[in-house]
Design a protein around this nucleic acid. Structure first.
Lengths: 105, 105
DNA sequence: TTTTGTGGTCATGTTTTTTTGACTTATTGA
DNA sequence: TCAATAAGTCAAAAAAACATGACCACAAAA
């Protein structure tokens, strides 16, 4: 375990970056709500208690940049934007379940 | 903490609290190092680049309070304190592995 | 007895994160 | 045309997290 290269360090950093991303304000809520179907900005603002535009905007952007959410412009009917879980995002679901079950110990 | 059974909000909060705890400064490093054996304050201070007493102290205390680390006073020989992974702490290991593998997608 | 090592705390300052509120662009409904 | 909804942005303030340096208690070694 003597720092061979930046091997192990890099691994830690990856986990760390993801942890940081997921632990930020409203991110777990956004994540959980995304399980029920596509999200909309205004809907989240209404549904998440205490949410504010800026933080929500940052959360959505960063989750999208990390490839966990996908942003889709819906050009029909009442023109709006939908965010939904990507495949990568879905791969995090069991991870959250695990975390929650550990939280209950 | 008014634990309402099967309240989804409460579940999220649990994941959130744990995420926050694990994502704080030096926590992933402390966690990883704890896999190799018992930790000592001064050792961590030496081994983690950029570490400082205050943050390390907070990290250890919070990880202990969450039941992930155990603090043991070793009264023999050169009188010191050891921190080591609890059973609950060990249950987080696969979780970190999962996180790392997702980070690589 | 002065110094060194271990394991911290405390007050303070800096940095990062989060919140607030004003403003924007575009679409729709009355 | 006026107002409302949707999806934001921007600058600034407030709050939370983190870092720094001084200090403390105890033990053992020089």
């Amino acid at each position: 375990m003597t720092t061979k290269t930046s091997d192990e360090n890099t691994e830690t950093c990856k986990a760390q970056a993801l942890l940081k991303l997921l632990s930020g304000k409203f991110r777990p809520e956004v994540f959980r709500l995304s399980l029920n179907g596509p999200l909309r900005f205004s809907g989240l603002l209404r549904d998440i208690p205490g949410a504010n535009k800026q933080s929500l905007s940052t959360a959505l952007r960063e989750l999208e940049e990390a490839g966990l959410l996908e942003r889709k412009i819906i050009s029909e009917k009442p023109l709006h934007i939908e965010y939904y879980l990507s495949v990568k995002g879905k791969s995090l679901v069991p991870f959250f379940h695990q975390l929650e079950s550990i939280g209950n110990i």
